Lab assay of single mutants.
Amino acid sequence: MGMPNRKYADGEVVMGRWPGSVLYYEVQVTSYDDASHLYTVKYKDGTELALKESDIRLQS
């Protein structure tokens, strides 16, 4: 078993793309699913969504 190939840690605050949009919002990573390679993130309004790594970026 190798290390999970994840870029962002639980609790890390990053920018997540809103689905169907080009806009990124501040989100907190809450979990990562090794099987689906999706991150569960929480937006400031409390919305929780699963995002692909390509829809997440570090805060500038």
Rank of each mutant, 00 (worst) to 15 (best):
M15T: 04
T47W: 07
A9M: 12
R6P: 05
G16V: 14
Y8Q: 01
L23T: 12
G46C: 06
K44I: 10
K7V: 10
G46R: 04
L49N: 04
G2A: 10
R17L: 09
K42M: 13
P4D: 10
M3E: 14
G20V: 02
S31H: 12
V22Y: 12
V14T: 02
V13R: 09
H37K: 14
E48K: 09
L23D: 12
N5T: 13
Q59A: 14
G46F: 04
Q28R: 11
I56G: 01
D10R: 03
D33E: 05
K44Q: 10
E12P: 00
T47G: 04
L38G: 02
A35K: 13
G2N: 10
L51V: 06
N5A: 12
K42Y: 08
T40V: 09
S36E: 09
M3A: 14
D45H: 04
A35I: 15
P4T: 11
M3R: 15
L49G: 08
L51G: 00
Y25H: 10
Y39P: 00
M15Y: 12
R17Q: 06
L38Q: 08
R57M: 15
Y43C: 14
Y25M: 10
P19C: 05
M3V: 15
E12M: 11
R57I: 11
Y24P: 02
P4V: 10
G2Q: 11
W18S: 06
V27P: 00
V29T: 01
G16N: 01
V27N: 00
V41E: 00
M3Y: 13
K7H: 07
A35P: 05
W18F: 12
V41T: 02
S21K: 08
Y25W: 07
K42E: 06
T47P: 05
P4G: 12
D45K: 02
Y39I: 02
S31C: 06
T30G: 04
G20N: 10
N5W: 08
I56T: 01
T40K: 10
K52H: 12
I56M: 12
D10P: 07
T30V: 15
M1A: 15
D55Q: 07
M1H: 14
G20P: 10
S60A: 12
R17A: 04
E48F: 13
Y32P: 00
I56K: 00
S36Y: 08
Y39Q: 01
G11K: 04
R6W: 03
M3H: 15
L51C: 04
D33Q: 03
Q28I: 15
V41L: 05
S54L: 07
T47S: 09
L23M: 12
Y8E: 01
R6T: 03
P19R: 06
V41Y: 01
R6I: 04
Y43G: 08
S60C: 12
I56D: 01
N5I: 15
K7A: 08
S21I: 03
D55V: 02
N5S: 11
Y43H: 10
S36P: 01
K42T: 10
Y25V: 14
S31E: 06
M3N: 14
D34F: 12
T30M: 15
L38R: 08
Y25Q: 10
E53G: 05
A9Y: 10
E48L: 14
V14R: 01
I56R: 00
G20Q: 07
E53Y: 04
Y24N: 02
Y24G: 01
M15E: 10
V41S: 01
Y24K: 01
I56H: 01
D10H: 05
G11I: 02
T47Y: 07
V27S: 03
Y25E: 08
Q28H: 08
M15C: 14
D33M: 03
R6Y: 03
V29I: 14
S60P: 13
V22T: 15
G46D: 05
Y8A: 02
A35F: 11
D33N: 10
V27C: 15
L58K: 15
V27M: 14
G2E: 14
M15I: 06
Y32T: 00
G2Y: 05
E26W: 09
G20Y: 07
S31M: 07
P19N: 05
V27Y: 05
G20S: 06
V14P: 01
K44V: 09
R57N: 07
E12W: 06
Q28P: 00
P4C: 09
P19V: 03
A9H: 13
Q28S: 09
P19E: 05
K52Y: 12
R17E: 01
S21D: 07
K7T: 08
Q28T: 15
Y43W: 11
T30P: 00
K7Q: 09
V13S: 07
T30S: 09
R17M: 07
I56P: 02
L23F: 13
D10L: 08
S36N: 11
T47D: 03
P19S: 03
A9Q: 15
K52D: 10
V14C: 05
T40F: 10
D55E: 11
K44L: 10
S54T: 12
K44A: 11
L51P: 00
L23E: 13
E26L: 12
Y25T: 08
M1E: 14
P19I: 02
Y32W: 09
E26A: 08
Y39G: 00
R6K: 05
S21H: 07
K42Q: 10
S60W: 11
